[in-house]
Each structure stands twice: as structure tokens, then as C-alpha cells.
């Protein structure tokens, strides 16, 4: 029992962090801003989803690198499942962003570099799955898909991180608007925000890990039945 706990402590940590952060998201005091009013609480959900997505995609890239270096197909399976989970988080991030935008910016989608960058980055990962689907031979698929995964993640970081800072943007922290520090992110808010980010990142890894393990189990069963 203790053995299981020592390997899964981070899952327990994730749950505890979020059990704290989710009620505090509603109950905690937030900085009062015009336009945003109470919706600033969405920070704890929308932004954390993006952080979780990036973390999970980073994990996917790491597995891709390991797949390339070792040639072990298990790493490739893990990379794919992590990418799938990352896309789910990205989708949630976009949808929460659209809901938030409808009430604060007036419409669900505006012509903003960060929004376009995020949509494009999800398109890049859709292309990753298209690529995987178009190659039948497993070893070659692993290699080509892993190369593309690394390429995709680097582009993701560039598109989401670099570009909006240089151009006009409605998002806070980019294009001349003050960042979250300038949004007078009070210490009260930071105390809920950081645990929430960490909690959702860990949850992302948990979900991705579960998906990876189930896929690997399927793969092993297939291998066994094909050998016998």
C-alpha cells in the first residue's frame, strides 16, 4: 500500500491542491476590474487549462525525443496519448476562452494574435494525427511522427509565446496591456492561482498517463496474441 502511495504521491497532491483551489476560486477575494467584474475568476480555470496543455505537450515531445533515440515503440505510444490529452486541454482552453470573451470582449472570437496562435497550434497537432494516420508501417510512423512532434512543439511555443507579445493584442500581458502582475493580481489571487496551475498540470499528467497505460496494455495484448 505504501509502495503505491510513494509512486503516486503527486496524484494525491494534485487532488489536494485542486480541492483547495476550486472552492477558493469562488470564495477568495479577487481584484476588482472594470469590464471583467467577477469573470476574473475564470483565470483559475481558463489559464490553468492552457498551462496544463503546454505541460502535457511538452511531455509528448519528451517521449518523442526518447522514441527517436531508443527506437522503442512504447515511447511513441506514450507520445501520441500525451498529444491527445494535450489537445483535449487545448480544446477546453479555447472553449472557456470563447465563453469568457463573449461576456467581456463582446464576441466569442476576435482577430487577436494569441487567439489565432492558439487555434493554429491546435491545427498543428491535428496535422500530427493526420500524419500518423497516413503512414502504415509502425517503425517509420514512429520516426516521422516523432520528428514532427518535436517540430510542432517548438512552433507551438513560438506561436503562443513570442508572437502575441510583439503585436497588438487584447489579451492581458501582451501588446502593451500590463501583464498579470500589472492587473493588480493581488497576493490573495496568487495564492489560489499557483496551486491551481500546479494542480491542473499534475491532473493533466495523470489523465495522459492513464490513457498511455491503457493503450500500452492494448498494444501488449495485441503483441501477445499475434505471437501466439
Amino acid at each position: 500500500m505504501l509502495g503505491i502511495l510513494s509512486r503516486n504521491w503527486w496524484k494525491v497532491l494534485a487532488v489536494l491542491l485542486l480541492l483547495y483551489a476550486i472552492p477558493m476560486a469562488w470564495l477568495g477575494s479577487v481584484s476588482v476590474q472594470v469590464i471583467l467584474h467577477e469573470t476574473i475568476r475564470n483565470l483559475y480555470f481558463h489559464v490553468t487549462m492552457w498551462f496544463a496543455m503546454i505541460a502535457v505537450f511538452a511531455g509528448s515531445m519528451v517521449y518523442s525525443i526518447r522514441a527517436l533515440r531508443s527506437g522503442n515503440r512504447l515511447f511513441d505510444i506514450k507520445a501520441q496519448q500525451f498529444a491527445q490529452t494535450g489537445m483535449m486541454f487545448g480544446f477546453i482552453g479555447i472553449v472557456t476562452g470563447m465563453i469568457w470573451a463573449t461576456y467581456t470582449w463582446g464576441e466569442p472570437w476576435v482577430n487577436d494574435p494569441k487567439l489565432n496562435g492558439s487555434a493554429v497550434s491546435l491545427m498543428i497537432y491535428v496535422a500530427y494525427f493526420v500524419l500518423r494516420g497516413s503512414i502504415d508501417e509502425p517503425i517509420r510512423r514512429m520516426r516521422v511522427a516523432s520528428v514532427y512532434n518535436i517540430f510542432a512543439f517548438v512552433m507551438l511555443i513560438l506561436l503562443i509565446g513570442l508572437m502575441p507579445r510583439l503585436t497588438d493584442s487584447l489579451h492581458p500581458g501582451n501588446g502593451g496591456n500590463p501583464g498579470f502582475g500589472g492587473y493588480d493580481l493581488k497576493n490573495d489571487m496568487k495564492m489560489v492561482f499557483y496551486p491551481s496551475v500546479l494542480g491542473w498540470i499534475l491532473m493533466g499528467f495523470w489523465i495522459a498517463g492513464l490513457m498511455a497505460k491503457s493503450k500500452i496494455a492494448e498494444y501488449k495484448i495485441e503483441e501477445d496474441t499475434s505471437d501466439k
Binding site: 467584474h37 467577477e38 469573470t39 475564470n42 483535449m88 477546453i92 472557456t96 465563453i99
Partner: peptide, 23 residues
């Protein structure tokens, strides 16, 4: 899990909408 996520999403969205619609 997708059902759970969508449910919490919808719920969160509605809650957020309530707080701003009255202002």
C-alpha cells in the same frame, strides 16, 4: 471524462455568465 469536463465547463460558464449579466 469528456462528459464530466463538458458538464463542469457548462456549469462554470453559466455561473460566470450570471455574475456578469446582472452588472
Amino acid at each position: 471524462p469528456t462528459i464530466i469536463f463538458s458538464a463542469s465547463l457548462l456549469f462554470g460558464g453559466m455561473a460566470v455568465a450570471q455574475t456578469t449579466a446582472d452588472s
